[in-house]
């Protein structure tokens, strides 16, 4: 009797977990299929023209802008984030008040909605510093937004590097600098990279913060001080105007492929970097 009841519970639980998994996958599959079906028929070569015109809403300028903003933001945020992580893990003493403060700040920053970053960027970079709606304003704003993410992931990655590596390096007479750059950082690289990829995902998907700071000009920006729109902003603009819904779906397809491509690339890089040493032998 008791056994039967147990069996029943077990079965119910199995069904529940299967159901949850199926629902999750199903939703995702439906979403992707929906976008692909609505978008692919409208992926015409004309969408990849260099010029955006009001007749032909080309997405290529937005694609280029996405790459530019991503690169610029990473250029600012990655060194800053990784160096602060190095400070927190390798240099700051344990129980240091500053460390706790930096960590608290980072955690708070990562919880702020992106529109708030946008507002800040608009007030500070666009208005006060007079950078105007520009790639630079957008990239700097986004770099502030992703900084906590990069810092925390780099910190976790560095903390996961076994202290025995550090001892080994010091034991051979290496200084701290050499230990950090030749031993700890390379060992932490896959983890740091994972954070960077997440950050790229946030940049590529961001709209709110960019509308306020980089503006919505649909051409390739002639200089970093010019306004331009990324793919996500482009999509938002198209669909909110309501005139080019088909092209909007086509843009969504490109965005989807871009993100999938980035993820695949990151997996590949992490594997190549990690493959050198990640696999633990003899343990």
């Amino acid at each position: 009797m008791k056994k039967q009841k147990q069996k029943l519970t077990e079965k119910a639980f199995a069904v529940l977990t299967w159901g949850a998994a199926a629902l999750t996958l199903g939703t995702l599959a439906f979403l992707i299929a929906f976008i692909l079906i609505r978008g692919i028929p409208h992926l015409k070569p004309s969408l990849f023209a260099w010029e955006y015109t009001s007749e032909n809403v080309s997405l290529l300028p937005a694609f280029v802008t996405t790459a530019e903003i991503t690169l610029l933001s990473l250029l600012i945020a990655v060194p800053l984030g990784v160096f602060s992580a190095i400070f927190l893990t390798e240099y700051a003493k344990r129980g240091n008040k500053a460390v706790a403060l930096v960590r608290l700040t980072a955690e708070t920053l990562s919880g702020i909605p992106s529109i708030v970053y946008g507002l800040f960027g608009w007030l500070f970079f666009v208005t006060s510093l007079k950078w105007g709606f520009s790639l630079l304003s957008g990239a700097v704003t986004l770099s502030i937004m992703i900084l906590p993410l990069i810092m925390r992931s780099a910190e976790e990655a560095l903390k996961a590097v076994p202290d025995t590596y550090r001892e080994g390096a010091f034991g051979l007479g290496a200084g701290k600098l050499r230990m950090v750059f030749r031993v700890a950082l390379p060992a932490a690289m896959p983890g740091i990279l994972a954070g960077v990829i997440l950050a790229v995902g946030r940049i590529v998907g961001e709209t709110a913060a960019l509308i306020y700071t980089a503006g919505t000009v649909a051409q390739i920006a002639p200089s970093p001080m010019a306004s331009a729109r990324t793919l996500s902003v482009h999509m938002y603009a198209l669909s909110s105007e309501g005139l080019f819904m088909n092209e909007s779906y086509a843009t969504a397809v490109v965005l989807l492929l871009l993100v999938a491509g980035i993820n695949a690339l990151s997996g590949f890089i992490a594997k190549r970097l990690g493959g050198k040493g990640e696999r633990q032998g003899g343990e």
Binding site: P162, T164, Y165, E167, G168, A169, F170, G171, L172, G173, A174, G175, R178, R182, V183, P186, A187, K276, G277, E278, G282
Partner: peptide
Amino acid sequence: LRRRVGMVFQKPNPFPMSVYDNIAFGPRT
């Protein structure tokens, strides 16, 4: 000092690099 007085630890702790780079780490340092 640590160059003159080398150390081997309780748990083997090779760096996550090639055999060659592990040995060359010290001399390169």
